[in-house]
């Protein structure tokens, strides 16, 4: 294993060249090892898929009966993602932005939020009056921003402070 000891700073902007690609693949492998052992210990059945989505490693634990690792509103999943990122960081020395999914939770949530964002954007485009959405995590807001961006005649902005930061959709 080779870690470039001269680069002490985390790679803030990861362009998708081949060197970064191999870093992301490596992140996926390290994460998979960390999670695999956890599944074993907890006696949970799950297959681990590793992928690269854009400039991030994407790791999914696939299977049913994984609810214990998802938790209410994905709180346990978020915690496990945090720990997995730290485990990757310890090995690579680079801060990881890896995305973890368990039992398809994030994929489902992404679909729901895309629908919600599109519907709200269409309402605002028709009515001409702004709409304020419920507070969301940065991950959730990103999905809604993207969904609204696909609708003509509206724009989005985030307002408020974390963790109560929310999206406002306005007509343009």
């Amino acid at each position: 294993m080779t870690v470039d000891s001269t680069s002490g700073t985390p790679a803030e902007d990861v362009a998708a060249d081949s060197e970064d690609m191999s870093l992301l693949e490596r992140e996926g492998d390290i994460a998979a090892d960390y999670l695999e052992v956890l599944l074993d210990i907890a006696d949970l059945d799950g297959d681990i898929d590793i992928d690269v989505e854009g400039d991030r490693a994407a790791v999914s634990v696939v299977g049913s009966g994984l609810d214990r690792l998802i938790g209410a509103d994905g709180a346990t999943l978020d915690a496990l993602q945090e720990l997995t990122r730290l485990a990757v960081h310890r090995v690579t020395g680079v801060r990881s932005r890896l995305m973890l999914d368990v039992g398809g939770h994030r994929a489902r949530r992404r679909d729901e939020l895309t629908e919600l964002g599109t519907a709200a954007a269409n309402r605002v485009a028709q009515s001409g009056s702004e709409e304020r959405l419920d507070p969301m995590t940065p991950f959730e807001r990103k999905i809604v921003h993207d969904a609204v961006a696909a609708v003509a005649g509206v724009e989005t902005e985030s307002e408020g402070e974390e963790p109560a930061r929310y999206i406002v959709i306005r007509p343009v």
Binding site: R68, L69, I70, G71, A75, T76, D78, A79, L80, E82, L83
Partner: peptide
């Protein structure tokens, strides 16, 4: 995060 995962 450790507490959340152990809780789960």
């Amino acid at each position: 995060a450790l507490r959340a995962v152990m809780g789960g």
